[in-house]
């Protein structure tokens, strides 16, 4: 197994290299630059001398191939450079936001698992009953409703209902405090985006759980278990559900990776200072260094999460062995 893990980790290098070249070229294909935005993004007058000086300082006037070599050399020596917008080290900027994004990803994934597996299971067991129809309606609605829209509705709902009940409108906090510093404040801020996002992902996982379980429930070994007179509860829990979890784990794993770097709009709606918001800001600001680093981070997370998912396959299904 460890050889397999090492092989997969080594494969990370060409993957990162390809992603690095691609993102480098794509970013530079977009017209404009960070200096123009920084010095005059609000329509302010720009000193032409300052504009030119800014470009020189940030190396924007250097030939493209030199910029690429510089970027690759820096990246593969773990020197991620400094943000072109703030001048602060990229690792510092990402580190500040990583904690929040990780917490949201974990909370949303938990919401997703807590909702999806029981609902998907019940839906499969009670196939074609009103319970099944209800669960399917809820999950289809979850897929259809974008999580950012749900977020907006949650905020408006909170404002309106609290004003109606207490006379004073309330909304979740808009500035972050770590969980261990102020748990109440932290959770009152993060529970809402976790629910909005978790619901969206739980809908996908619910449908996946349902269809995978239905498939497994028609397998011969389930019929055999029933013929042996095993309790239905035991058949579901020990034989069917575990075997139906492989595609669910895949979905949840990919969702988790996506949550780490992809909560772009939801983070903005709830004003979360996470990786997704940083991503949007760095792309908008044409901060090449930051954007490149974020893309590489997300690629790394995706590759590692996929590896973990593959390992989990082996844990869940003894027939799967890697060599």
């Amino acid at each position: 197994m460890y050889k397999y893990v090492i092989k997969r980790l080594l494969l990370l290098i060409p993957t990162l290299f390809g992603a690095a070249v691609l993102v480098f070229l794509l970013l530079r294909a977009v017209p404009g630059d960070v200096c123009q935005l920084r010095l005059g993004g609000g329509g302010e007058w720009i000193d032409p001398v300052a504009l030119e000086q800014c470009k020189i300082q940030l190396g924007l006037n250097d030939p493209l191939h030199l910029q690429l070599v510089d970027f690759l050399a820096s990246f593969f020596t773990f020197n991620f450079g400094e943000s072109m917008w703030t001048g602060r080290p990229v690792a510092f900027e990402i580190g500040l936001r990583f904690e929040l994004s990780l917490q949201i990803a974990i909370m949303a994934t938990l919401v997703s698992i807590i909702v999806a597996i029981p609902l998907g299971t019940i839906s499969a067991i009670k196939q074609n009953t009103w319970i099944d129809y209800l669960v399917r309606t809820i999950s289809i609605a979850g897929i259809a409703i974008p999580s950012f829209w749900l977020g907006i509705i949650i905020i408006l709902g909170l404002l309106i209902t609290t004003q109606a009940w207490t006379g004073t409108p309330w909304m979740p906090p808009i500035d972050y405090r770590p969980l261990w510093e102020d748990p109440g404040y932290n959770l009152s801020m993060l529970i809402w985006p976790a629910v909005a996002t978790g619901y969206r992902y739980s809908a996908v996982a619910t449908r996946m759980t349902r269809s995978a379980l239905l498939e497994v429930l028609r397998e011969d070994y389930v019929r055999t278990a029933r013929a042996k007179g095993l309790l239905e509860k035991m058949i579901i829990n020990r034989h069917a559900l575990r075997n139906s979890l492989l595609p669910v784990v895949t979905i949840i794993g990919i969702e988790f990776a996506f949550l780490m770097g992809g909560l772009v709009v939801t983070e903005q709606v709830f004003n979360l200072n996470g990786i997704g918001k940083l991503f949007v800001e760095s792309v908008t600001n044409q901060d090449y260094v930051m954007t490149q680093s974020l893309v590489m981070l997300v690629v790394t997370i995706f590759v590692l999460v996929n590896l973990v998912v593959d390992i989990l396959y082996a844990v869940l299904d003894p027939r799967i062995r890697y060599s």
């Binding site: 909170l158 409108p169 309330w170 808009i174 500035d175 709830f270 918001k277 800001e281």
Partner: peptide, 21 residues
């Protein structure tokens, strides 16, 4: 004073409405 960064206008508006700013 505390200056809270909120790039999205809807957040800024709701923050004033909801007593966060």
């Amino acid at each position: 004073f505390k200056a809270i960064s909120a790039p999205k206008m809807s957040v800024r508006i709701q923050a004033i409405r909801g007593g966060r700013a």
